[in-house]
Design a protein around this nucleic acid. Sequence first.
DNA 1: TAATTAGTTCGAATAAATTCGAACTATCGT
DNA 2: ACGATAGTTCGAATTTATTCGAACTAATTA
Lengths: 99, 99
Amino acid sequence: MPIFLPKEPLRDELLLTAVLYALSDEVRLGIVRQLAEGGEQPCGVFEVDRPKSSLSHHFRVLRESGVVTTRKDGKLLMNTLRRGDLNARFPGLLKAVLK
Amino acid sequence: MPIFLPKEPLRDELLLTAVLYALSDEVRLGIVRQLAEGGEQPCGVFEVDRPKSSLSHHFRVLRESGVVTTRKDGKLLMNTLRRGDLNARFPGLLKAVLK
DNA sequence: TAATTAGTTCGAATAAATTCGAACTATCGT
DNA sequence: ACGATAGTTCGAATTTATTCGAACTAATTA
């Protein structure tokens, strides 16, 4: 079966509780901070002390909550923080969390 | 055994992930919103469709994460949102979440 | 003193999240 | 075509959270 990335919620489907939950984990928060700093990056560059299947799980949570968007580029999955959507729906949240 | 309220973290012991986790639940977020609106209130005034033992659990999570502080007043436990501490440690977070 | 009220604590059941290895898909390079 | 690389998916184990009823503590009121 082909790889299906989870469907990412549209801007107006973002749920505050889901976003807060996604950000409430150290690993995921670390990923988000690094994306905020360095812009679009593939999954592999994140140095977390966990096997890739665990990392993949955390990316899924970030995608499904709408915190991150992922596009395919060759053999890489490139991840971007959904700044615009998050700022539109929850103004100030990202800034407060990333500070 | 006497009733021991969970120890509330000091301002500089607040953890962002713990706060975000506490806020990532609809019931708890509802309590926090109502405290933000109406100021100090006892546990009993919150109309959530759950038995009081469940409510008590949610208050515990809010206290242990440092979102809420509780003082005893007669037979009531009065709860207050820890605005000052939260704003000091995570500027803008509360505003963004409560909007 | 007894009854009521407010809310916690306990214990056990259920539900949900996390973790990891192994197997897999897809792409790239040789 | 083959091997290596990137990352997902699956399945099962473990951990953590939630839920609730019942028993409890402490304060109030009769």
